[in-house]
Design a protein around this nucleic acid. Structure first.
Length: 599
RNA sequence: CGGGGCGUAGCUCAGUCUGGUUAGAGCGCGUGGUUUGGGACCACGAGGUCGCAAGUUCGAAUCUUGUCGCCCCGACCA
């Protein structure tokens, strides 16, 4: 049995808040001696932190196994050729970490895996070649490497992290639905068992659409995703994807268009202040062009000199933001904001004065995409396609079309606070910050097509494997748990993932009785299969209590001279203020009860 | 990649503007003593090529240039 005496263990706690740590979980993980930073976005897990991480790992593994997934272990080093088969060297860009080496060296042909769709599909291609062995779900718990542009918030966003990634392979869409559901349910169990207050939200699902993707979120300001939740909880989605009920038609009488001299007023805020109007009464006119498919050096696959696609003019309300995911889907192309020269050519004005009502005068072809919220406006203010001028009382239908070959009315904006639930319940949407701890995704045949991973179906015909992928960030679970469970004194671990379940503090370690009693409790609890840490350090009581609160072990047994003189020891839960007194024998029973009740 | 900030002891920082003995404090660490139920106190001590490099100067933590690293905001995020 390993010796878990604090005096012989390594728990470098600190009183001072490390200067680089901003969010609570980062500060506490450093102060409690769980992690140590080695480089930007690269952390060591110290003994206490590693124990918690392994607890999380165990829960994840148990639930994956229970859901019928099969564990394997794939390499971190991948031949880049594998990534070229799916075109993701380009899609991933700088996120894909390459090894450096002399030209022609194997190193330059090797990348560190940021995820494992390609390697797992390579395995599936080799071995999952009959409908008879389907469905199969494979998973691993493995380190991932990503060239994150900006690691931040401690362990929440790093360049190296531990992930559980699972991949399902099915013969048809119904099978995928079933596999997806099984993983979804396993995820719910995992996050519940880890003590996380999570919600599952609809997530951006890329080209497949529908209900093909969910993210598991923990609501906290330390997160960097935004989720849209309705007040009555009938809808929850990532803002990348969230939709809302259409806005109602404004029925004000249309006023005649009026031109206003607005010298140098370009931004929505400037113009609003100048015109004494509000952003919600303005139309933001944005010009997009198709992203040039960049031909990476060395790959002579560039298709150039095709006809220059027409710019896409997008209208959203002044207080709304374009959601580029939605826009790309509506337009059927990958768009980016147009450079100034195209804007000048199309609008005849400097950037900042574009409007939808007089665009035809340039003679340039363009497509018009009108956000639904704009389509119901009346008497809006917008640019006048004339430098230093804006127009008042611009109206859809009268001044620019809502129908026609090159016109689309659609939802292309990001939802905002106060939008109403898309379910029609009328419940308002609230935006909340959240940490993404898990993501389930129906992939379909994207990778099996690209890598020709087919199986022979019962009809004797080769068909592409239908895939799903399912990720969980284990380090993020740890950090999210701390974000959700801490107080001024430190961490309050959920029992299930606490590095230790019980902390025994010997308050007067030089007293023979105290040490003997504490040591006996330590041995008994250990023998009962509990994870026990024994604070046998010769320190003052206050010092040890502060440390105990900081590292947040759920159950604390205090053995002190005074209480022992009355024949008792003290039991306290980290999350509650009250202290219970027990005879040493009784406390072991009580602790066992408490641990069993929660596991 | 754009904007801002910071690199001095294991940690938190002062000193830099205005160059000048041997570079400081608190925490932590070691030794001894007094203490001992919510981060004690006294004494002594160990620990730093002031991120790195070049330059200016009689002299550089301090000025100049370059470079590397870290943090924050933004952009980006299969």
């Amino acid at each position: 049995m390993p010796c878990m005496r604090w005096s012989r263990y390594l728990i470098p706690t600190t009183k001072e808040v490390p200067k680089d740590a901003v969010v609570a979980s980062h500060q506490l993980m450093l102060r409690a001696g769980l992690i140590r930073q080695l480089a930007a976005g690269v952390y060591s897990y110290l003994p206490l932190g590693y124990r918690a991480l392994r607890k999380v790992e165990r829960i994840v593994r148990e639930e994956m196994d229970r859901a019928g997934a099969i564990e394997l272990h794939m390499p971190v080093m991948h031949p880049i050729e594998l990534w070229e088969q799916t075109g993701r060297t380009q899609a991933m860009g700088d996120v894909l970490l390459r090894l450096a080496g002399p030209d022609g060296d194997w190193r330059t042909q090797t990348v560190l895996g940021p995820t494992h769709e390609e390697p797992v599909t390579e395995i599936a291609r080799a071995y999952l070649n009959s409908y008879r062995i389907l469905p199969v779900t494979l998973y691993q718990i493995q380190v991932k490497f990503r060239g994150e542009a900006r690691p931040k918030s401690g362990v929440l966003r790093t360049r190296e992290f531990l992930m559980k990634d699972a991949y399902s392979f099915d013969r048809d869409k119904e099978g995928l639905d079933a596999s997806y559901k099984r993983m979804y349910e396993a995820y719910c169990r995992i996050f519940s068992r880890c003590g996380l207050p999570y919600i599952a939200v609809e997530a951006e699902s890329g080209p497949i659409g529908g209900d093909a993707s969910h993210e598991f979120m923990v609501l906290t300001d330390a997160g960097e995703d935004f989720v849209a939740l309705t007040e009555n909880s009938d809808y929850a989605a990532n803002t990348e994807r969230a939709v809302c009920a259409p806005l109602a038609q404004d029925n004000a009488a249309m006023l005649p268009i009026q031109e206003v001299h607005t010298p140098g007023q370009r931004t929505i805020d400037e113009v609003c202040a100048f015109l004494k109007t509000r952003p919600s009464q303005m139309i933001k006119t944005l010009v997009y062009v198709e992203t040039a498919r960049p031909a990476t050096a060395g790959t002579p696959s560039a298709k150039s000199t095709a006809e220059e696609p027409a710019p896409v003019v997008v209208l959203v309300r002044g207080d709304h933001e374009v959601n580029e995911n939605k826009l790309n889907r509506v337009s059927g192309a990958r768009l980016q904001l147009a450079p100034p020269d195209i804007i000048r050519k199309l609008t005849g004005a400097d950037v900042g004065f574009a409007g939808p009502h007089t665009l035809d005068k340039s003679g340039m072809k363009y497509r018009l995409i009108v956000d639904q919220a704009v389509s119901v406006m009346r008497n809006a203010a917008t640019g006048d396609n004339k430098t230093d001028y804006h127009a008042l009382n611009v109206n859809p239908t009268r001044d620019f079309p809502l129908t026609g070959d090159n016109v689309t009315v659609a939802d292309v904006r990001t939802v905002v606070n106060g939008d109403l639930s898309p379910t029609g319940s009328g419940s308002p949407i609230r935006l909340r910050k959240a940490i993404e701890v898990g993501h389930v995704f129906k992939l379909g045949t994207k990778y099996s097509d690209a890598m020709r991973a087919t199986f022979l179906d019962s009809d004797g015909k080769p068909k592409p494997l239908i895939m799903g992928c399912y990720g969980i960030g284990l380090n993020r679970i740890m950090a999210a748990a701390i974000e959700a469970h801490h107080d001024d004194g430190g961490i309050i671990w959920p029992l299930s993932i606490a590095p230790f379940q019980v902390l025994i503090i010997a308050l007067d370690p030089r007293e023979k009785d105290v040490m003997e009693t504490a040591d006996k409790l330590y041995k008994e609890l250990n023998a009962a299969g509990l994870d026990v840490l024994f604070d046998d350090r010769d320190e003052r009581a206050g010092f040890k209590f502060k440390d105990a609160d900081l590292i947040g072990i759920p159950l604390r047994i205090t053995v002190g001279r005074k209480a022992l003189a009355e024949g008792v020891v003290e039991l306290k839960g980290r999350s509650r203020p009250d202290v219970e007194k027990f005879a040493p024998d009784a406390v072991v029973r009580r602790v066992k009860e408490l641990v069993q009740a929660t596991s």
